[in-house]
Design a protein around this nucleic acid. Structure first.
Lengths: 233, 233
DNA sequence: TCGACAATATGCTTCATAACATCCTAATTT
DNA sequence: AAATTAGGATGTTATGAAGCATATTGTCGA
């Protein structure tokens, strides 16, 4: 299930950049470092699977993780992507439920595993940590609510445009305005909640409308303003 | 914006039944009681509005509150209903954002307002309170994720069946299996994310399939098994 | 380098559901 | 009781998007 291939670098094991841990005392931070386990996971690796019991949460120090749920007849619904500086698996851990999502590496990643006991210790010993954790959960909750409204009320076209803009916000562009995350059409469809063919068609339309440019999986933004208009934002 | 009409009863001001406050010390609980403000809100009252700044969160001790977001051209998307024992408005408060939903009374309600300062005090002074709060947020987050998957992948028919089952779970039935919450067809549509006409049609179908019985807004369950099958659960 | 498989692209058909237009019914007001 | 209004019901039509078939391109391993 997990497959570490090589040792993570110093930087990839360093959690001091995480906002979440900023308010820890030296002792608390040392204990965190002592009890964490960092590993490299190659593309395609499943970090945890829907229905499994989790032993801790993970901090992403490199790479991209796809978090998704499996719906009707195996069709996956992408909930979010996690990148450097974000945490995953904390939801199921805190609510003491089995994992309700699967996490899969889509860009070789470095993760630090923090055991449940350590999490509980931090919650007990440092209220600012709990407070920060609450803020993370509540922000994610807002995003989820926004998404529900969008998906329930917008057309596939609007949602796809919005998803592209969202990706642009979260995974910045190179100097040529090209998106630095490589997703298949199917993955885009699984974010938008539509069929792969529909995504392909709409992307072609956006392309002939000069809103984007396509080269394989690379998506280059030509006209953000139009895209925003299409997204109905 | 707020309109208290009469004084709440003893029972309606009592927060000792809330799981969330179970682990408070006597002092903490006393301070909570001292700083809370309980009122009665009549049907139709807006508790808080999308975009407003909140001064605290609310505990529901009686009645039903509809939490919804306003989407494209004013169409409302119902996020959830809150009833006795639940809390509302805590999300925006904790993440320090403006309210992203509106809360409206649909069954005369009694609410206790807990100021932000009190919330912060409890988070700082009692880690078990924070922990419990985290669990509430994380559970709601799972529900939101489940809902996203459903709405993205299921048909309107399946979603409506599922919503009916969900209502059955959350608002128990009378001795004749009739749902004890009265919603308009439009409100059902706003939960499911569809048009009012579609809900009307599908409810009629369920009725002629002997799955439910309808009398105005009263919905009586005849065949839960079939409904579950329709919902594709 | 070739074969094989996965991903992408595109046309055509089908179907679920939204949108529109009435009409009906029950509750509320005057 | 007449008048008004909100909610509910139903038929008709329009359309967005899914599903299927098929072609093309791209990618990886032997």
């Amino acid at each position: 299930m997990r497959s570490a291939i090589k040792r993570p670098s110093e930087a990839e094991s360093d959690l001091s950049g995480f906002q979440l841990f900023k308010k820890l005392t030296e002792d608390e931070f040392n204990r965190l470092n002592f009890e964490k386990t960092c590993s490299i996971y190659k593309k395609g690796t499943i970090i945890y699977r829907e229905g499994s019991r989790l032993t801790g949460f993970f901090c992403v120090t490199r790479g991209i993780i796809k978090i998704y749920k499996t719906g009707i007849d195996g069709k996956e619904q992408i909930i979010r992507f996690a990148k450097k500086g974000e945490i995953i698996a904390y939801r199921s851990l805190l609510s003491q439920e089995l994992a309700c999502t699967t996490a899969k590496v889509i860009d070789e990643a470095a993760l630090c595993h923090i055991p449940y006991q350590t999490l509980l210790y931090l919650i007990q010993s440092n209220w600012q940590f709990s407070h920060h954790m609450l803020q993370i959960a509540c922000r994610e909750l807002r995003e989820a609510n926004d998404y529900i409204t969008d998906i329930a009320q917008k057309t596939v076209r609007e949602r796809l445009a919005e998803v592209l803009l969202l990706l642009k916000e979260n995974f910045d562009l190179d100097n040529q305005n090209t998106l630095q995350i490589s997703l298949t059409r199917e993955e885009l469809a699984n974010m938008v909640g539509t069929a792969t063919e529909s995504v392909i068609r709409l992307l072609s339309e956006f392309k002939s409308d000069k809103i984007i440019e396509l080269q394989g999986r690379k998506i280059k933004f030509l006209d953000i303003a139009s895209l925003t208009r299409v997204a109905n934002l």
